[in-house]
């Protein structure tokens, strides 16, 4: 992020060379045809410039030529489509072992949370050589997470999670921009991605150590009295949540859902959208009760919750207001 002028942006992720590969192909095609057309126009315009009032002969056209300049571009664009699409699917498929980072965009800053509990504003520390998967949401309007040196971009939407992944190949500091216009201070919604050697990253992590994301989530799990119903005992009124992440969940009416991030988020904020088969719709919605950051902590906790790890129920706690009566008119 040195302020030096570079004509071509740094390539700092495994994706960057792939994208640039497609880019150079497109540039070659563009340059070739632009030069071809420009040269032909200039040659014709000069060679056939008007010298007399004599009228040129009429040429209707040529089916052969038309077919030629229909089929050749068609073949070229179909190849480009194939190539760019195959790179695209690489770009949207994070490796299984990616390190999770959670991002919340809001006017006008980026809030990052690591699973270890480290939190950052407008800076993202990551290790070099390791895939990182970002799970992102917005608290207000649409933002967009863009790191030019990594050639990655994804809009960050309110109301749901979108994801992005990268694997940095160079240490250093790289620009992070918001690229979806989001209001007055849009152009200041910028940050830095700090790519570090793995050892340095570990040191950084330790220096920032706080309660891990999952630990914070566990505290919330107890504080919000989730455990009262989601207990792993005979008196459980809600489904057991152990080893739930990425499992198939049977829903009512024979439907199924995969317990991914978006499912867990929805089931906390708006539990009755997808009722697990065999359970009563008694859980209150937590929309407006918890912040996006807290939801992320809860989801992070649920992801780590293994067999037999559900905390014990504290007898004194009362169940939450299970079913709130319809609200009176506003």
């Amino acid at each position: 992020m040195e302020a030096d002028f570079e004509l071509f942006p740094a390539q700092a992720s495994t994706i960057a060379p792939l994208v640039d590969g497609v880019f150079w192909e497109l540039t070659a095609v563009t340059a070739f045809f632009t030069v071809l057309i420009a040269v032909m126009i200039m040659v014709f315009a000069i060679k056939y410039r008007r010298r007399s009032q004599e009228l040129p002969r009429r040429i209707e056209g040529s089916l052969r030529l038309e077919l030629f300049w229909t089929i050749v571009p068609l073949v070229i664009v179909m190849y480009l489509f194939y190539h760019s699409t195959s790179v695209y699917f690489t770009m949207i498929t994070p490796p299984a072992d990616a390190m999770d980072v959670y991002v919340v965009g809001r006017q006008w800053m980026w809030a990052m949370q690591h699973t270890g509990g480290q939190r950052e504003i407008n800076t993202l520390h990551v290790p070099v050589g390791r895939p990182v998967k970002l799970t992102m949401t917005s608290q207000d309007v649409i933002h967009s997470f863009f790191v030019p040196a990594f050639r990655i971009k994804q809009d960050v939407l309110p109301g749901r999670y979108t994801t992005l992944w990268f694997q940095a190949t160079r240490t250093g500091k790289f620009h992070l921009f918001c690229t979806e216009y989001c209001g007055t201070n849009h152009s200041t919604m910028r940050g830095t991605v700090h790519v570090m050697e793995p050892r340095d990253f570990e040191l950084w992590q330790e220096s920032q150590a706080d309660g891990s994301l999952a630990a914070e989530g566990r505290k919330l799990f107890l504080k919000l009295q989730c455990v009262v119903c989601h207990s792993a005992d005979a008196r459980a009124r809600g489904p057991v949540l152990e080893e739930l992440y990425r499992k198939d969940v049977p829903l009512e009416a024979g439907l199924r859902a995969t317990a991914d991030d978006n499912y867990l988020r929805e089931s906390i904020l708006n539990p009755r959208a997808k009722i697990v088969a065999g359970y009563q719709p008694i859980m209150p919605p937590y929309e407006g009760e918890v912040t996006e950051e807290q939801v992320i902590q809860l989801v992070a906790y649920l992801k780590t919750l293994g067999r037999g790890q559900t905390p014990l129920r504290v007898e004194a706690t009362q169940p939450p207001a299970a079913y709130r009566a319809p609200e009176p008119p506003k």
Binding site: N270, R272, I275, P281, P285, E287, R324, P326, E327, P328
Partner: peptide, 16 residues
């Protein structure tokens, strides 16, 4: 307002 209307049971999502 839906006050005074009998809501379906089970309710998909919260009342709000």
């Amino acid at each position: 307002s839906l006050a005074g209307h009998e809501l379906p049971d089970p309710l998909p999502g919260g009342t709000r």
